[in-house]
Computed example of a mutant assay.
Amino acid sequence: MKKIGLFPGSFDPLTFGHLDLITRGSALFDELVVGIFTNTNKTSYFTPEEKSALLKEAVKNLPNVKIVLQPQVLTVKSAEDLGAQFLLRGVRNGEDLTYEQNIAAMNHHLAPTIETVFLLSDPKYTFISSSMLKEVLRFGGDISTFVPKHVNQALKEKVKQFEQ
């Protein structure tokens, strides 16, 4: 049986922490689906289509990774529809672990046959969050060491649009 993992996220913006998890996850599964989901608690800079294009560019060297848009669907429903048996989640710190454990428990309640797999973040990425990077960028800080070059460029263009 083909092992399919789903890595859900809002990816706004895509960071090197995300890419590290995608790369490592692609080695664990026959197919890794990166699902671009809507997080109702966050304000997005990019449209789902823009996020998809940025992700596709970033993972073009990973043949078993595919990108899908899942804007208004439960993660476990998406996993079932995609035939994924696993959800891949990253954990940066203890706070993330508590948060992710609660999500995993709810997902298990909703879909008991789908297993959540946690990967610990590489220590060099443990303090990076998309929200933090957007805040730094908003106030003129340099985030180029935390995001791929093409994402950094797209972010600079977005900031210019917001300033107009």
Rank of each mutant, 00 (worst) to 15 (best):
Q161A: 14
L14G: 05
K2S: 10
L6K: 09
T38H: 12
T47Q: 09
F127W: 08
R92F: 11
G5K: 03
L55S: 12
E135H: 01
N93V: 09
F86C: 10
T126N: 13
T47V: 15
T47P: 12
I143V: 09
L97F: 14
I143A: 07
A111I: 09
D122Q: 15
G141K: 05
V147A: 00
E57P: 10
I143P: 13
F29E: 03
K60S: 13
V59T: 06
V151D: 14
Y125W: 13
K42T: 00
G83K: 00
I128Q: 08
A104W: 02
H18C: 00
V34P: 02
A84M: 11
L55C: 11
G9L: 03
T98Y: 14
D96M: 04
N41W: 05
S130D: 02
E50F: 04
I128F: 09
V147Y: 00
S26P: 03
F127A: 09
A58Q: 04
F29I: 01
M132C: 00
L87T: 11
K124N: 14
R24C: 09
S52D: 12
L119V: 00
T113A: 15
K66T: 11
I67S: 01
N93Q: 07
D30I: 01
T98M: 15
F37L: 15
L21W: 05
K134E: 05
H108D: 11
A111F: 04
N107E: 10
N41H: 15
S121V: 05
E100V: 00
P148K: 15
D81T: 15
I103W: 03
Q72E: 06
I36L: 06
Q101L: 10
A154H: 13
D142K: 13
L19R: 07
L155T: 01
L82W: 00
P123T: 12
A154N: 13
T75Y: 05
P48E: 14
Y45R: 06
P123R: 11
N152M: 14
F29S: 07
A105T: 10
I67G: 05
L155P: 01
L6N: 08
R89P: 06
F11S: 09
L54Y: 08
K149W: 08
L14A: 08
R89Q: 01
M132L: 09
Q153L: 06
K56F: 14
L14H: 08
V33G: 06
T126I: 11
I67A: 02
G17W: 13
T145N: 05
H150R: 11
Y45K: 15
T43V: 13
L74S: 00
D30A: 03
E163P: 06
K51Q: 14
M132S: 02
G17R: 11
G35W: 01
V65N: 02
M132T: 03
V151N: 04
N61E: 13
K51F: 14
A104K: 04
E95C: 12
P148V: 12
G25P: 02
P8Y: 06
N61V: 07
A79W: 15
E95A: 14
Y45F: 14
A111C: 11
T40P: 15
F86Y: 15
P71W: 15
P71R: 14
I114C: 07
S78C: 08
S52W: 06
G94I: 02
T23D: 09
P112Q: 08
